[in-house]
Design a protein around this nucleic acid. Structure first.
Lengths: 347, 347
DNA sequence: GGGGCGAATGTAAACGTTTTCATAAAGAAA
DNA sequence: TTTCTTTATGAAAACGTTTACATTCGCCCC
């Protein structure tokens, strides 16, 4: 392996000068600098990250702890984080946890000491969990976290507002018998979306509603769709807690020859890129998924640079109802309604 | 920050013993071990990765350099890599390059010295590029690389065979006027898929074919679909070089009220999870995308453990035609044909 | 009871880099 | 010239960990 010493010897300078020349900064004579740069390039010298980190106390890396890596939601999220990290010159360490709280704690532990900051999305992680397992050793930002805990930074989507807006839209379209395919129970966002749906329905006279269990996968949406068709009291609109389930549900309807939106309306949540390419194009709640990653990373940067600044609380990203054909909206061909301005930070 | 010295002092042993106790291995008396473990847990000691890496010459991390992070193909690929890496106790550093060869080289450079191995997928990277910019400092495995270069390890999909098989299937369905929506020119896999299509068509009498340019995005597929409909000589089957474009194309057909497969057949490539949930479900070439990541990581592990072993050449992963409704296959409702056994390593 | 041996623990030297401090050289002010 | 300041460079000390080697201790065997 070629080290800084080799470069120093070849270029006939000390290691200190090599370090200075290569890190751009302080006083090195132009001729020495180019000589060193040439030598380094010739020897193919690459500074060892570990050694550098050890002395600078910086890894130039952030970790992203995610619950799963399945589907377009996460590819969009990772994309948003990656782009923002790249712009800041940071490396991105991704880690997924499929298991329970213990496994999540283990993953969190493994990530510490390797990164300068942590982006966390996990149903098991809230402020208390973080304080217990992180102990302030690394700044962290929660994404879509369960608890709006003032003491830890977090960036969330306005799941509740989005679900309210979408439910309101379905009602406005004239649908009265609604069904909701909910996401996995432990997920905070799944609960919020359901709450938005239920409260809106409860506040409107003359409506009936029904809940089906799902787990955010297409397959569970497909199952739910079949269950709805086989039941005796078919709803006139189905609101799925995410697009993947809506897509699975749509496919079940298509298989059964039930036309959407003529016979049954359908809406999703997330606005994953594929949603608009479905047939019919899917009415959904737009969440700027990549923006969530982007904003979370920016927040993390702030905390990394000034770790002792007062905790900045929760940032909420607005959602937006995107009306496409699948909800049977007669009045407007396509349009959108925002739940509120974004991003909005609540201290 | 709490270091190994703090733990040693608290537990009244030397740092060496702490290190031994925490790393599981050699002779430590059970009572001392538990005392050290307790102390470490109490102090919330986390070993600093950088220091550990510096002395062990291992980062316990692999890097994945990917061309982009958009769409389900990459989320599946990352998922496959992540799962395999997790199983091996390795961390995963992801990095994407959107730019040209220079940017790719820079990303490659930034990744060196931070990882024990590299997984690379990039249209700009071939064996020569690798030798020039990597210089054997880190073992690397190419995924779906342009050049089947014996001197560097690579895992590829049988793009050519898959395209041949699919084209053959479309012909077997009775379609004679074919169109192919090709992927971005610089991509090796895009070229291979086109080659498979063209050669199969050329070998069959009485067929006509037409090529349209795409870039693997839904949007480009949508554009291509519209172009096909507006043209005077409408094909009876369209083969898109990936599923995303097929989905965009399908959406264009749907918008125009052109029925698939009755009026025009459609096929894709990749079998992303969503493909089967389209309407009609998409006939496509199944590529075990996550398996590609998985196999690539396993290959990398081998090279990491024995760097001086002779280069093992190219591993090819078979593709499989998955027949669903979109191709208008009258005879069989659903089925599949493999191009060959997988995985198959060619030394 | 002494010699040898193995197990448990301690000591200290690496690992490659940055950075502080010291030094040398070169110019500016006198 | 002399002295002071500035600038470029070098020497060496950190950074936190692992690990080769040294040491101590207790035990068994003769």
């Amino acid at each position: 392996m070629v080290t800084i010493k080799d470069v120093a010897r070849e270029a006939k300078v000390s290691v200190a000068t090599v370090s200075r020349a290569l890190n751009g900064s302080s006083n090195v004579t132009p001729p020495t600098r180019v000589r060193i740069e040439r030598t380094a390039a010739r020897l193919r010298y690459v500074p060892l990250g570990a050694a550098r980190s050890l002395v600078t106390r910086r890894t130039q890396a952030v970790g992203a702890l995610l619950p799963d890596l399945y589907g377009e939601f996460f590819s969009e999220l990772i994309r948003g984080i990656d782009l923002a990290a790249r712009a800041r010159g940071l490396h991105l360490l991704v880690s997924s946890t499929h298991g329970d709280a213990d496994e999540t704690a283990a993953a969190l532990h493994a990530l510490q000491g390797r990164v300068d900051g942590l982006l966390i999305m996990s149903p098991h992680v809230d402020g208390g969990f973080l304080r217990k397992h992180l102990a302030g050793s690394v700044p962290a930002v929660l994404m879509d976290a369960a608890l709006h805990d003032r003491r830890c930074a977090s960036v969330s989507i306005d799941n509740y507002g989005g679900a309210r807006a979408m439910t309101g839209h379905l009602l406005a379209c004239g649908h009265r018998k609604l069904a909701f395919i909910q996401g996995p129970e432990p997920n905070h966002d799944a609960r919020e979306r359901r709450r938005g749906f239920e409260e809106t329905v409860a506040a409107t006279r003359g409506t009936t509603s029904r809940l089906l269990q799902g787990d955010y996968s297409e397959e569970s949406g497909h199952r739910a769709g079949r269950a709805l068709l086989s039941g005796k009291d078919r709803p006139d609109a189905v609101f799925a807690a995410n697009d993947m389930m809506a897509i699975g549900c749509l496919s079940a309807f298509n298989e059964a020859g039930v036309r959407v939106p003529e016979e049954i309306a359908l809406a999703g949540f997330d606005d994953i890129p594929i949603a608009r390419y479905m047939h019919p194009p899917l009415t959904t709640v737009r969440v700027q998924i990549s923006e969530l990653g982007h904003v979370a990373l920016e927040r993390l940067m702030i905390r990394m640079q000034a770790p002792d600044t007062p905790e900045p609380g929760v940032t909420t990203l607005a959602c937006e109802v995107v009306v496409r054909a699948s909800c049977g909206s007669g009045t407007e061909a396509s349009g959108s309604v925002k739940t509120r301005q974004a991003p909005h930070t609540n201290n």
